[in-house]
Computed example of a mutant assay.
Amino acid sequence: MCRNGKKLLAVNKRNQKTATGYRREITSYECESCHGCPFKKDCIKGNNCKTPFEDRNKTLSVSRKMEEKRAECLERITSEYGTHLFELKKVS
């Protein structure tokens, strides 16, 4: 959902390989219509587009694997063991 409450629809999926050889699947989402949206100026960034600003819709790209890895890291950091290691690091 966008800030204005409209649904972002998946428009395509693509596989990408980074310079280090990491492979990821990226899903691109696009808003149904941003016409008349009061948040459009804050939401849509970038001036390198040939499409006029009035005709553009919000797009968003997400890597599910990256989201999973972030969640795992957050879980490890906030665990009892992770907070204990952080405390030890602060002392030294």
Rank of each mutant, 00 (worst) to 15 (best):
A10T: 03
C2E: 03
Y81W: 06
E87P: 05
R64P: 05
K89P: 01
F86R: 10
N15V: 11
M1T: 11
A71W: 08
N4T: 06
T27L: 04
K65Q: 15
T51M: 00
Q16E: 15
N15S: 09
L88W: 03
V11K: 06
V62I: 11
K69C: 07
L85N: 11
S92E: 12
N57W: 00
M1I: 12
E54C: 00
F53N: 00
G82R: 02
I44D: 01
N47F: 03
R56Q: 00
I26Q: 05
K90S: 10
E80A: 07
P52N: 02
E32W: 02
E32S: 06
E80I: 07
R70Y: 07
S92Q: 14
E32Q: 09
E72P: 01
K6M: 13
S28T: 15
K7P: 14
P38N: 01
I26L: 13
I26E: 15
F39V: 05
G5P: 13
M66Q: 09
Y81A: 07
N4D: 15
T78N: 13
Y22I: 15
V62T: 02
T27S: 04
T20Q: 07
E25R: 15
E30C: 12
L60W: 09
E25N: 14
T78R: 13
K17E: 13
G82N: 04
C37D: 02
N48S: 05
N4Q: 12
P52A: 02
C73H: 12
E80Q: 07
K6Y: 08
Q16P: 01
S79W: 10
C49P: 03
S61H: 15
K58L: 15
